[in-house]
């Protein structure tokens, strides 16, 4: 029963939405379903938040490995939540001066703005910037001219790496106009728009068919592994 009902809902919902896509009167049902999913996912935030607090409180109270990190997580989570939801330090909006919560939550100088500007922003930027370091170490480890294909890949990588900087222009600007297609910056564009696009299209077509087939398996109940057990 615990599996049958979700299966019926999935199958009915899925096939109705497929058919609805072709009928003018029902074409927006897909968007309505997406909005309903957003509502569900938003409510599930509470579930996630609760779980986060529970797991980390447990770790702190057990003094498990890395409990200090858990403590920081709990404090940061609660502080951001209180400051953001309570709009602490935010002035009421000029339109509704009598309502203290009518102000903008990210008002300049407010504690939430401060958290965003001096904690969230540098932290996320740092994480993204780490990619530069990892790309260098991955390139050092993975690129080997083992065979013809790898050599082709390597040469292409060099052209693109040079072509995305001034080095590309500098190295081949001496080429006469009738050979301008061979200038590194132009080769880069050619590789990206011809070879890369062709390869990407093939992968995308494969993926699109894979998505359609997987979706059908889910709708038909052929693949039920994501639903879990039928028993409690």
């Amino acid at each position: 029963m615990k599996r049958t009902v979700p299966l019926i809902i999935t199958a009915l919902g899925g096939f109705v939405l497929i058919v609805a896509y072709f009928i003018p009167a029902t074409q927006n049902w897909g968007e309505v379903a997406a909005i309903w999913f957003d509502i569900l996912a938003s409510i599930a935030f509470v579930l996630g938040g609760g779980n986060l607090i529970r797991i980390h409180l447990k770790k702190v109270s057990n003094k498990g490995a890395g409990w200090g990190y858990s403590l920081i997580t709990i404090v940061a989570f609660l502080a951001t939540l209180v400051v953001g939801l309570g709009k602490i330090g935010v002035h009421p909006s000029a339109l509704y001066p009598n309502f203290p919560l009518s102000g903008e939550y990210r008002e300049l100088g407010s504690p939430f703005w401060w958290l965003y500007e001096y904690a969230f922003k540098p932290l996320t930027a740092t994480m993204f910037a780490m990619l530069a370091f990892y790309i260098a170490s991955a390139a050092f480890r993975a690129f080997r001219a083992k065979n013809i294909e790898a050599i082709l890949l390597l040469s292409t990588a060099f052209i693109i790496l040079l072509g995305r900087t001034f080095a590309g222009v500098f190295l081949t600007s001496w080429m006469p106009d009738f050979l301008s297609g061979l200038r590194i910056e132009n080769l880069t564009i050619y590789i990206m728009s011809v070879f890369n696009t062709a390869g990407n299209r093939a992968i995308m077509i494969g993926i699109a068919l894979g998505i359609a087939s997987t979706s059908l398996k889910v709708l038909l109940g052929v693949d039920r592994s994501y639903l879990g057990t039928g028993e409690k």
């Binding site: 996912a41 599930a44 509470v46 579930l47 994501y226 639903l227 879990g228």
Partner: peptide, 14 residues
């Protein structure tokens, strides 16, 4: 994602 946690729990339990 919270919903993924719920689904993963069901799946792993199964």
């Amino acid at each position: 994602r919270s919903l993924v946690m719920t689904a993963a729990r069901e799946t792993v339990q199964a």
